[in-house]
């Protein structure tokens, strides 16, 4: 694992975690709070955030607005209210990541437009990990056409940029595991996984993460994507592996120094598989 990376996280990103009555989904919220405190405790220079909810089609998008700010309303759960946001972006480091990504043959696109819609997942992350909005962030999109190899290459570009800049980073991906929503209105106590099979597959992957069996997780990942419909076909996992592995070669994962993941909490969030995982 790149020595510049202090910690890494896998997080859910639905609006219910940051908005709505405090008594809802308390176990998940407490897990997010603990994870956020753990990240803040290492006083990172920068956060690197991959959000599966920021979908791009013209290659990989990168946020280049030095200070995105505004009000966001979730398109589905608009009744929960507004997410107000203002946070700094590490533009220099972002450009460094873009440069390494381009060297790897990936298409990149920087975005710097007032009013650009920051996705709910990125703002839920800010809510728990950057409550004062004072830690600079690098935010990358999830390219809909990007497969396993390119996602890992994108992750590796992050690792190279961090090694180059010598900044101490906390890395996070915001992504559901299984991503099939319940399609009816529910109260939080009625929440459940959309199917037992998806729950089973989620738990299988979580067990592999917890035992640092990443090679096996990669081997099973395409089957998992078919059986459990993870968000954006599990691209966040490939990206994270690309960030955390020491070497450019994917085979490095079999003997890698990526530690086992610590599971803060796993449960349903409107039918999806929500896991709060931490790599120290």
């Amino acid at each position: 694992m790149n020595s510049n990376i202090e910690k890494a996280f896998w997080l859910p990103g639905l609006a219910h975690l940051a908005l709505g009555p405090a008594e809802n989904w308390t176990d998940l919220k407490h897990a997010m709070t603990r994870a956020g405190e753990s990240a803040l405790a290492v006083k990172p220079d920068v956060y690197i955030l991959y959000s599966a909810q920021w979908i791009s089609v013209l290659g990989h998008s990168f946020q280049l607005d030095p200070n995105p700010s505004g009000i966001h309303v979730d398109e589905n759960w608009h009744e929960l209210g507004n997410l107000n946001f203002s946070f700094p972006v590490d533009v220099a480091l972002t450009k460094r990541v873009m440069n390494f990504a381009e060297q790897a043959g990936l298409a990149t696109k920087g975005v710097n437009y007032p009013g650009f819609p920051i996705d709910t997942g990125s703002l839920v992350f800010q809510h728990f990990f950057n409550p004062n909005g004072d830690i600079p962030v690098v935010i990358l999109s999830s390219n809909i056409y990007c497969g396993k190899d390119d996602s890992m290459a994108l992750g590796h570009a992050v690792s190279q940029a961090l090694a180059d800049s010598k900044q101490r980073a906390v890395v996070a991906c915001v992504s559901s595991l299984s991503n099939r929503f319940l399609t009816e209105d529910i109260s939080p106590v009625q929440d459940r996984f959309s199917s037992p099979e998806e729950d089973h597959w989620n738990q299988k992957m979580l067990t592999l993460f917890q035992s640092a069996s990443y090679e096996e997780a990669l081997r099973l990942s395409e089957t998992y994507a078919k059986e459990a419909s993870p968000e954006m076909m599990f691209k966040a996992f490939y990206w994270l592996m690309g960030v955390l592995e020491d070497k450019a070669s994917r085979s490095a994962i079999s003997s890698s120094s990526i530690p086992p993941a610590f599971l803060h909490h796993y449960g349903p969030l409107w039918g999806t598989g929500a896991a709060v995982l931490e790599w120290k």
């Binding site: 398109e75 437009y113 009013g115 209105d185």
Partner: peptide, 26 residues
């Protein structure tokens, strides 16, 4: 305007603001 729980209708008498396309913001 993708919704996963139900079919939604705009229900504010007047809406205004800035809409930036997340795919083609340029």
């Amino acid at each position: 305007w993708q919704t996963v729980v139900g079919h939604h209708v705009l229900h504010v008498p007047h809406l205004s603001g800035l809409s930036v396309d997340p795919i083609f913001p340029h």
